[in-house]
Simulated scan of single mutants.
Amino acid sequence: MLDDLVYVRMNSLMMKKRGELEQKNMLPINLDNISVNDFEKSIEDVDKELKRLLDDVDDSIAEDLLFGASASFTESETQPPDFYVETLNLDTMFTPQVVVQGRAQCLGTDQDALLSHISSAPRFPSPSFQAKFERPSPETLQVTLTGAVRTKIDSEGADILVALYENGLLTDCPAGDNRGRVLSNDFVVRKMEKLCNIKDISAKKTVNGTVSFSLWDGFKSNKCGIGVFLQDRSFHTFGCQNLSLPQNL
């Protein structure tokens, strides 16, 4: 739905996994041995373990972790590969598939690394924004936010970013391994805007601002929400808040 990058080296487990994947990529592909069921089972195992892990933490932490990862995907659309190499201190050039709070990254298929990064991620208090939603026109959504970031911000400053996401998306797959299947996706970031930049403020100081989003065809407010989060110049995320949109906005 936005977010971060980090100064963390790839852990040895990820390097080992990547090496194995690169070796497999050099082998000829036998289509008769490819099993969609095996792939789906692996994804289901990760989803179940991730849900179990997030059930053990409070909502603010879960939101911070989930949106932190989402933001990284958004950055990957705009940043060149060498940017990741420098920022994440990688020793190989590739774009991470998952970045947790801008401080750790891994391949999305590496279950052990993914769950380890989530469980060890630093905890921050969620901002306490109140939101006012308006539709100045059928094509525009305006969001006014007022509240405290609940984290002291020094002279280096930080941006307050707002992501508009959509749940319940369905993708029909006419070809490929998932041919004939319909895949569902939640927390898909549709738009992201910067609310403001803040510097030298206390955790309790009130901040306010307004952002506007251009909407897409088929927009339905009951399927959408916004994620508000803080991000510094190093793309580290600290503090995230999830807000649902009103029904039939």
Rank of each mutant, 00 (worst) to 15 (best):
C106F: 00
P96T: 02
K48N: 14
K48Y: 10
V100G: 07
D45P: 09
A62V: 03
D56N: 13
A113W: 00
L66F: 05
K51V: 13
D110V: 02
D82Q: 10
E40I: 14
G108K: 07
S119C: 06
F129W: 04
G68F: 04
S60P: 04
A113D: 14
A104M: 06
P81Q: 07
A71M: 03
P127K: 01
F133R: 12
Q105C: 15
F73A: 12
F83K: 02
A69T: 01
Q79G: 05
P138V: 07
T87C: 11
Q111P: 05
P138A: 01
L115G: 05
T109M: 15
Q111T: 14
D59A: 14
E134D: 13
F124P: 12
P96Y: 09
S116P: 12
L53P: 10
S116I: 02
S116T: 15
E77A: 04
S126I: 07
P81E: 07
P127I: 05
V85H: 05
R52V: 06
E134F: 10
D45K: 08
L53V: 02
V85A: 07
L107K: 02
L53K: 07
P138N: 04
R123I: 15
K132A: 13
K48E: 13
E63C: 14
L65N: 00
A113L: 11
S76V: 04
H117M: 13
Q79D: 05
D55A: 15
T109S: 15
E40D: 13
E77H: 06
Q101W: 07
L66E: 02
R123T: 14
L90M: 14
D82E: 13
E134I: 06
K132S: 15
P122I: 00
A104I: 05
P96M: 01
L114H: 00
E86Q: 10
F73S: 13
Q111C: 12
T87F: 10
A131H: 00
D56T: 10
Q111D: 06
P96K: 05
S72M: 11
D91K: 07
L114E: 00
Q105G: 08
K132Y: 08
E86H: 04
T78L: 09
R123N: 15
A69R: 07
F129I: 08
Q97G: 12
T109R: 08
S76H: 08
F67I: 02
R123W: 08
Q105M: 15
R135M: 14
T78N: 12
F129Y: 04
S120K: 00
Q79L: 04
E134T: 13
T92V: 03
G68P: 12
N89F: 01
R123G: 12
E75N: 08
